[in-house]
Simulated assay, not measured.
Amino acid sequence: MDTAETRRLPMYGAGELTFPVLAFGNDEFFDRDTHWEEHSHPTHELLWNETGAGTAFIGRRAWTVTGRVALWIPAGTPHTGRTPAGSRQRAVHFSLETPALAPGPVAVELTPLLHLLLVRLIDDDLPAASHRLTEQMVLDVITPSDRELVLQMPTSPLIAPVVAAVRRNPADQTTLAGWARRLGVSTRTVTRTFEAETGLGFSRWIATARAQYAVAMLSHGLSVAEVARSVGYCSASSFTTAFRRVTGMTPGQFREIGDACPIDES
């Protein structure tokens, strides 16, 4: 039996549909791995995972969506996505009457206040006056964040085997020199190709890819030691150093921020 689900949604242009409120939301728990085929919304979308970690794919970029960092997707932007079984995902949609945070996708840090306000917008029973007040408060406090976890996916056929190997197994230990030998080129060529395609060198791209996998595992409650082994680090301390270099925080701090956003079970 196939436990995965594929969803198909329409492709809407920005503002193609209108709504009687400035913002509205939805909330769903997923008991199966779920994939969304390419679609776009007539509204701006702010997407995050209360539990688990989802991924949104926009162009060549893969964005990790968690309980501490949401993703703002401008109206009309084509994207695909996936979220694993056991995740709870929330989204708030904003009409085009609200100002866009940025011309393109951007990370938004879910502070406790912003999180509380967004959850109120998802409440279908919120009185109209309270809904309007909450909308305005959200617009007053929502801001872009530099705490993003986004990975540019290279498309060069030369380094495609590297990308495939890491996606199959983030613990793959093949070094830059090892890949250069396999590909029949110099280490400099591999490094230059990664930099040209992703803006990152080989080692930093690998570390960022591993951090994305690690976030998903941490969000599902695995221990730091278990996650470290799963993504290819010989010790929890070396994993912590690499994770902090990519995300700006330790795995423990990441968990604390996620835990600071309580889940409303009402």
Rank of each mutant, 00 (worst) to 15 (best):
M1A: 06
M1S: 09
M1P: 13
T3R: 11
A4L: 10
E5F: 04
E5V: 15
G13E: 15
G15Y: 09
G15T: 06
P20T: 11
N26D: 11
W36A: 04
S40W: 03
H41V: 00
P42I: 02
T43A: 12
T43M: 12
T43E: 09
W48C: 01
N49Y: 02
G54V: 04
G54C: 03
T55Q: 13
A56C: 05
F57S: 07
R61N: 13
W63P: 01
W63T: 00
T66I: 03
G67A: 13
G67N: 11
R68T: 08
R68E: 09
V69G: 00
V69S: 15
A70C: 08
L71D: 02
L71R: 10
W72M: 14
T77R: 15
T77I: 01
H79Q: 10
T80C: 07
T80R: 15
A85W: 05
S87L: 05
Q89Y: 02
V92M: 06
V92R: 07
H93K: 03
H93N: 02
F94A: 09
S95P: 01
S95C: 07
P99F: 00
P99K: 06
A102N: 14
G104S: 09
L110Y: 04
L110W: 07
P112W: 04
L113C: 00
V119N: 08
V119G: 02
R120L: 11
R120M: 11
L121W: 03
D123P: 14
D124N: 14
L126I: 13
L126N: 13
P127E: 05
S130N: 11
Q136V: 11
M137F: 05
L139M: 15
L139P: 10
S145K: 07
E148A: 15
E148S: 15
V150Y: 03
V150A: 15
L151K: 02
S156M: 03
P157D: 05
V163R: 08
P170M: 06
D172F: 00
T174W: 02
T175W: 11
T175V: 06
G178K: 11
L183D: 05
L183R: 12
L183Q: 01
V185L: 12
S186N: 12
T193R: 04
A196F: 00
T198F: 04
G201P: 04
G201M: 04
F202V: 10
F202Q: 07
F202W: 12
F202M: 03
S203P: 02
S203K: 08
W205G: 06
T208Y: 01
Q212V: 03
Q212K: 09
Y213I: 00
A214G: 08
V215E: 06
V215A: 12
S219H: 02
R229F: 14
T241C: 03
T241H: 13
R245E: 13
P251C: 10
Q253S: 06
R255H: 00
R255Q: 08
E256P: 00
I257L: 13
G258E: 15
G258H: 02
C261M: 15
P262I: 08
P262H: 14
I263S: 07
